[in-house]
């Protein structure tokens, strides 16, 4: 199981700010497939993935028990 957090506009699709998902794969790309299968509406949105408080790319290995999906930043 892995905990996935959602922020901003993404929560309007997922209707939750975090959830536990069953995941037995290796890469961020594989995890995103699981997430998008559950929440198809995310496909049309722009977001980045963070692991251990850093942005990671699709080929990165999932090595944390928490992953965050981040929509475009709007600070300042």
């Amino acid at each position: 199981m892995i905990k996935v957090k959602y922020f901003g506009m993404l929560t309007e699709i997922t209707h939750c700010s975090e959830e536990q998902l069953a995941f037995s794969g290796t890469t961020v790309e594989e995890l995103l497939k699981v997430i998008v299968t559950k929440h198809p509406g995310l496909k049309s949105l722009n977001f980045q993935v963070a692991q251990n408080n850093d942005i990671v790319d699709l080929t990165a290995k999932v090595n944390a028990d928490l992953i965050a999906l981040l929509p475009p930043f709007a600070g300042g």
Binding site: F7, G8, M9, L70, P71, P72, F73, A74, G75, G76
Partner: peptide, 27 residues
């Protein structure tokens, strides 16, 4: 500092209109 904050800090902004609808701000 300001440019780094805008580019790197994971902060999200919901722009609320006078009629209480909203959209999401993007830097």
């Amino acid at each position: 500092l300001v440019e780094e904050i805008k580019a790197k800090a994971p902060i999200f902004g919901k722009e609320i209109f006078e009629d209480e609808t909203h959209q999401w701000k993007v830097n």
